Amino acid sequence: MAARREVEIVALHASPVHAYEGRPSDGPRPDPGPVSQGHVELRAGLGIVGDRYFNHPAHRNAAVTVLAAESLDPWSVDPLVARRNIVVRGFDVDSLPRGTVFSLDTGDGPVRFEVHRQANPCAWMDVVIAPGAFKGLRGKGGIRTVPLDDGVLRVGRAALDVVGA
């Protein structure tokens, strides 16, 4: 039984490098180019084309991260600072248990994702968001997923369907 929700994709993030490496006190390393995307291309089982985790064996079941924008509301920050690939407003993605399949459709057809685990926040959140964000995002840091379909997602209105577990 599917449960459809109208949501908004407020940010899409894809970067060829991991900016939050090393000691948080040293600050993030700069991205080589724009990380905010108007649209992203997904490949089944591989992730987002052009992202640092695309086709990376260690991240096959966690290549695409999804975050609820509401998790960042207490800090009024750019949703890209959390470095999650897809930031949606209007649905609590952290409530989806492991094994759940959901889809997002921004007009180019649905892209299904399977939830594999939580995307726990790290100590970098206290540096790039605000002191206390690391603790404040526990249990609200998003989810790690694998795309089950090839497709395209765009910033803007979207339909989210929880397909099943």
Rank of each mutant, 00 (worst) to 15 (best):
Ala19Ile: 15
Asn55Val: 07
Arg60Val: 14
Glu41His: 10
Arg157Gln: 09
Leu153Met: 03
Gly141Tyr: 00
Gly50Tyr: 09
Gly139Gln: 02
Lys140Met: 02
Pro24Ser: 03
Leu46Tyr: 11
Pro74Ser: 03
Val93Gly: 02
Pro16Ile: 01
Glu70Trp: 04
Ala69Tyr: 03
Ile48Met: 07
Trp75Tyr: 14
Phe113Met: 10
Val162Ser: 05
Leu148Cys: 13
Asp92Tyr: 03
Arg89Lys: 12
Thr106His: 01
His56Phe: 05
His56Leu: 14
Thr100Ser: 11
His13Val: 13
Leu153Thr: 02
Ser36Glu: 15
Val101Cys: 04
Arg4Gln: 11
Arg157Lys: 08
Ala82Ser: 14
Arg89Ile: 03
Gly142Cys: 00
Gly132Phe: 06
Ser25Phe: 13
Val128Arg: 00
Cys122Ile: 00
Val87His: 00
Val128Phe: 05
Gly136His: 06
Val81Asn: 03
Phe134Gly: 10
Ala69Met: 07
Pro57Gln: 11
Ala159His: 10
Asp92Met: 03
Gly22Val: 12
Arg157Pro: 07
Val64Cys: 10
Trp124Pro: 01
Tyr53Ser: 05
Asn55Ile: 05
Asn61Pro: 09
Ala119Leu: 08
His13Leu: 11
Glu21Lys: 14
Thr65Gln: 11
Ala62Ile: 09
Thr100Asp: 10
Ala82Met: 10
Glu70Cys: 08
His13Asn: 13
Gly109Tyr: 06
Pro24Arg: 01
Leu72Thr: 00
His56Ser: 13
Phe134Arg: 08
Glu41Lys: 11
Cys122Tyr: 02
Arg138Phe: 07
